[in-house]
Design a protein around this nucleic acid. Structure first.
Length: 469
RNA sequence: GGCGGGGUAGCCAAGUGGUAAGGCACGGCUCUGCAAAAGCUGUAUUCGUCGGUUCGAUUCCGACCCUCGCCUCCA
């Protein structure tokens, strides 16, 4: 297979990615906590992970992709209580919405999407192993990981090079549990009043697993003690992934992860998205404003994944217009190919874009190469191109669009509602009668309702106008 | 305070020790009943600031300014 290189957070260098058993890449991704709709920033991470999977497969590799669903923690418990629903019902509902949104964004379903609550026995086992080995201790019904018992602690996030500011996050002493050291983290949480019906029996009494534990337990249960690639948002580097390494390696004595993959955050108005700033968008919001989910996917891939990306409606416009142009180039190529087909492995003039993706998922470079190639091909086509060459370029374009995960966008047409079609037909009649006042009025009415009429050689067609609620 | 990213045209975003990719937006022209769409075409003497190295720096070095993120349960 072709080489795929990817930045590794642990070594801070771009390294070739490899499947340790020579078969499938064992890729575990930290998924969402299902207590509400995921926002477009959450999806940036998942879209980038999906891109990696597609790149790996297009390079000739196989991948076993696992992405968990966190369905028990403070937020899910609180949410379920407020919704007056059993925890399982509450989280299933949000998990379904997450999966549906992911599908709209072209995310390839992972091989498995394990839920934390389905792996409680494995989590308890892991805690027991750690307690036996002296890496964890029980206090007031909770179990904590003894950070000082694990010398490698802090390697991933370079904790030794940092001075932790007292209470910088305002959460340092937010929980009431009794720890030996402030750095120790909870593996198992004793049952509290507000947890209500949510608890499992354990050697330490009623309680529930701590957040960091689930990923270690599920990843090791599904893949074994060492996984090839593990990732998530950049905010998970510390403490989540640091803690995962500690609890996994302290238990097994084996390296937990060979390659770490972290995606920088999406910003809105140059700020981290948050409810309090009122700049949090969900996929539903984006679609409600008349955009296509795939336009968002392109926006989420418009910047390099290790760089914070600033979301704005302007970038959505840019993505949509650019992609419409690609669609035109594509349909003209299709015509020029006259039904001829080239192999799916073909890259044609789009090889440069592919090479950029294999080098640490350089999407900005790849997109630039893609547009440049599209212009070159279009010029060649106009100058005269054989059916075979057109078929080859078409295959190359489809191939790169498939890797970007947006090929579906070029196959579907958004149907206009019957009401809009009728207005457009009326306008056509008015135009034929040269009743310009009436035809312009109908055009305005359509615009007001969010639809744009585009006249062409073959008559009119309707396109949804973005930015209309 | 510590650590880590960023500052390149109106916006997004590549890049290199030798004089700035690409996309969007914008301007002009063609087309059009007028538009939109489509097609053709043009657009940064300049790369946060100040110094230094160099024949030459946006690219190397130093200082500074601004900005974003993380700092123990946020993708």
């Amino acid at each position: 297979m072709e080489e795929v290189r990817l930045f590794d957070t642990a070594t801070r260098s771009v390294k070739p990615l490899s499947a340790s058993d020579g078969e499938a890449l064992k890729f575990y991704a930290c998924g969402p906590t299902v207590y509400g709709p995921a926002h477009i920033g959450n999806f940036r991470t998942f879209v980038v992970q999906d891109l990696l999977v597609r790149v790996w497969e297009a390079a000739g590799g196989k991948v076993d992709h696992v992405r968990n669903l966190t369905d028990v923690d403070d937020k899910t418990i609180r949410g379920a209580r407020e919704a007056k629903l059993p925890l399982g019902d509450f989280t299933s509902k949000w998990a379904e919405i997450f999966i549906k949104d992911g599908k709209s964004l072209g995310l390839t379903p992972p091989m498995k999407q394990p839920k934390a609550t389905d792996f409680v026995p494995q989590q308890i086992d892991l805690v027991e192993r750690l307690v036996k080995a002296g890496h964890a201790y029980e206090a007031d019904g909770s179990v904590y990981f003894r950070v000082k018992s694990f010398p490698g602690y802090g390697k991933l996030s370079r904790l030794d090079e940092r001075e932790v500011k007292e209470g910088a996050s305002g959460r340092a002493d937010a929980d009431e549990y009794a720890r030996e050291q402030a750095a120790d983290f909870v593996l198992w949480k004793a049952h509290k009043e507000e947890d209500g019906e949510v608890f499992w029996e354990s050697p330490w009494g009623k309680g529930r697993p701590g957040w960091h534990l689930e990923c270690s337990a599920m990843a090791m249960q599904i893949f074994g003690e060492t996984i090839d690639l593990h990732g998530g948002g950049s905010d998970l580097i510390f403490p989540h992934h640091e803690n995962e390494i500690a609890q996994s390696e302290a238990a097994t004595g084996k390296p937990f992860v060979k390659h770490w993959f972290h995606v920088a955050h999406l910003l809105v108005e140059n700020r981290k998205m948050s409810k309090s700033l009122g700049n949090l968008h969900t996929l539903k919001d984006v679609i409600r404003h008349g955009w296509d989910a795939f336009d968002l996917r392109l926006v989420l891939l418009s910047g390099h994944y290790r760089q914070p990306l600033n979301f704005s409606w302007d970038t959505m416009t840019a993505a949509r217009h650019g992609r419409e142009r690609l669609g035109r180039v594509r349909s003209k190529l299709e015509e020029a190919a006259k039904g001829k087909k080239a192999g799916a492995e073909e890259w044609g003039s789009f090889r440069g874009a592919w090479d950029a993706l294999r080098e640490d998922l350089e999407t900005p470079k790849a997109l630039a190469a893609l547009y440049t190639a599209a212009s070159t091909v279009e010029h060649k086509r106009k100058a005269g191109m054989s059916d075979e060459d057109a078929a080859k370029e078409l295959a190359g374009l489809d191939h790169i669009l498939e890797v970007f995960g947006v090929s579906a966008l070029f196959e579907k047409q958004t149907e206009a509602p019957a009401e809009m079609k009728q207005l457009a037909k009326d306008r056509e009649i008015a135009r034929n009668a040269k009743d310009w006042t009436e035809s312009d009025r109908l055009r305005d009415e359509l615009a007001l309702k969010g639809w744009e009429v585009r006249d062409g050689a073959g008559g009119w067609r309707l396109v949804r106008k973005p930015g209309t609620p």
